[in-house]
Design a protein around this nucleic acid. Structure first.
Length: 177
DNA sequence: TAAATACGTGCCGTTACCTCA
DNA sequence: CCTGAGGTAACGGCACGTATT
């Protein structure tokens, strides 16, 4: 930072400034307090750091980008783990369904809304799109969903709203299933 | 009041430079 | 010494909000 030349207009190749440790520390400290700067704060910080306001501005832009990237990576890791646990849960439930079918015993909590009698295990099916266990074979349009809903963390909601992947969208749209 | 213009700012994608293994 | 990868300061362009005409 010692050699801070003002070769901005026109030709000469841009030299790249390395911020000193102290400058970085102060910028980080300021970033912790607020992620954006108003013109007055920018000016004051630039003065304090002996940098141009534009450099402070650029640093904050890049810093915001870095922190967003980090956040995205963390969300990605979280979703991977979440996916893994859901897959495992799904496997367990499918096994359970198979066992119940084999025993031909209906789960005690699943009652027919019409006859008020327990439904046979053979009426249990797994919806291929939303992977919920449902009871079928009832009267027209009265399919009853009996699975426990998985609480959707806000982090996933945030990500899906940001990313909007087809997989997530189709999963959301299958909620009406 | 609405439209046109200017200006400031943030974000995004990219480039260029620097450091280090 | 050379080289490729990774980190990051800096840039240009676009979108958006606000003030002014």
């Amino acid at each position: 930072m010692e050699d801070e030349e003002e070769s901005t207009n026109g030709g000469p190749p841009r030299k790249k400034l390395r911020l000193s440790k102290e400058q970085s520390r102060l910028l980080e400290e300021s970033f912790r307090q607020h992620h954006t700067l108003n013109p007055r704060q920018k000016e004051a910080l630039a003065l304090q750091l002996k940098l141009r306001p534009r450099q402070v501005e650029v640093w904050f832009q890049n810093r915001r980008a870095r922190s967003k990237l980090k956040q995205t990576e963390m969300e990605c890791e979280y979703l991977k783990r979440w996916f893994g646990s859901l897959t495992e849960q799904n496997r367990r439930l499918q096994r359970e369904v198979e066992e119940l079918r084999a025993l031909k015993v209906g789960p005690p909590t699943v009652m027919s809304p019409h006859s008020c009698e327990p439904l046979p295990a053979s009426t249990l099916t797994m919806c291929p799109s939303c992977e919920r266990v449902t009871t079928t074979g009832l009267d027209k349009g009265s399919t009853k969903t009996t699975t426990t809903a998985v609480a959707t963390p806000t982090i996933a909601a945030t990500l899906s709203s940001k990313v909007g992947t087809p997989a997530l969208q189709s999963r959301q749209s299958s909620a009406a299933c």
